[in-house]
Design a protein around this nucleic acid. Structure first.
Lengths: 139, 139
DNA sequence: ATCCTACGATAGACAATGTCTAAGTCAAGT
DNA sequence: ACTTGACTTAGACATTGTCTATCGTAGGAT
């Protein structure tokens, strides 16, 4: 189901073992990994891959619009392969779990012109914070 | 107009020269400073104040609910003394300028139960991103 | 007014995350 | 199979923040 690798190849992305491995890690698991977690999983498949390459490759995938960067906390950025359907995030304040969610309506419409101060707004990022059922149970 | 110092004293906050200076920096300028910027301005008034103290004090002010932590980018956290009126942030993608904004409605109501996955949601954080008039002009 | 003591402040080491550089390697076109 | 420019590497460096051990002091007690 590696649409991602196909798309990248089709866009003229030079394919290397390292890039393939990073793409596979993201494509394989639909979760929100940090750069270090991506690196750890990449090392399992390609032990000599370097940290810098993982960072570079993630940065490229973000530039290409194939992966989203998510900063839900002040810790490491996370990488979200679900870049093709707009969505927001729901974060557990206790365990850090992240879920993709799809709110109704367009959050942009909640900001009247008088509150835009002449800005040309291009994007809205919404993060819902709470406690997940698991953490509530073990509270 | 130092309500802040008054409130803190009233809450039994032990007053020191360092804490006073940090509180004054935040109270004086209604902007969104990073910890290092707070430190720099504090040093102007009290040259021997240490970085650790600024971090500690900011952390306490956040715990006390007198100041909000804002993470609009992956860079340093910013500290927002406007903690008593709920608001969201509008960020310039070019120069990083931050404005407080007040959207209409409650963003929580945009998330149907079916999209809450059993989470107990306590907070919503909305960040609008765009380009400010100044940066548009100089583009 | 002075003394005590617990709480606050300090310097600097350490940690986490990310970026940069110089040199080596290799994918892909010829 | 060559060649070349793009990719990868190791590790130094940068930024932001935290921790620890020690010193200083605010504010209550005397």
């Amino acid at each position: 189901m590696s649409d991602l690798l196909e798309r990248l190849r089709g866009r003229g992305w030079r394919m290397t073992a390292q890039r393939r491995v990073v793409a596979e890690v993201l494509d394989g698991e639909h979760v929100h990994l940090t750069a270090d977690e991506v690196h750890a999983r990449a090392v399992d498949k390609l032990p000599e891959i370097s940290r810098a390459t993982v960072y570079n490759t993630l940065g490229e995938l973000v530039s290409l619009g194939e992966v989203l960067e998510v900063s839900t906390d002040r810790r490491a950025k996370r990488y979200d392969p679900n870049a093709h359907r707009p969505h927001q995030h729901l974060v557990c304040a206790r365990c850090g779990a992240i879920r993709d969610v799809h709110p109704t309506g367009n959050p942009l419409s909640a900001l009247p012109d008088s509150e835009r101060f002449g800005f040309t707004i291009s994007d809205v990022e919404v993060t819902y914070r709470g406690v997940c059922p698991n953490c509530v149970a073990t509270a």
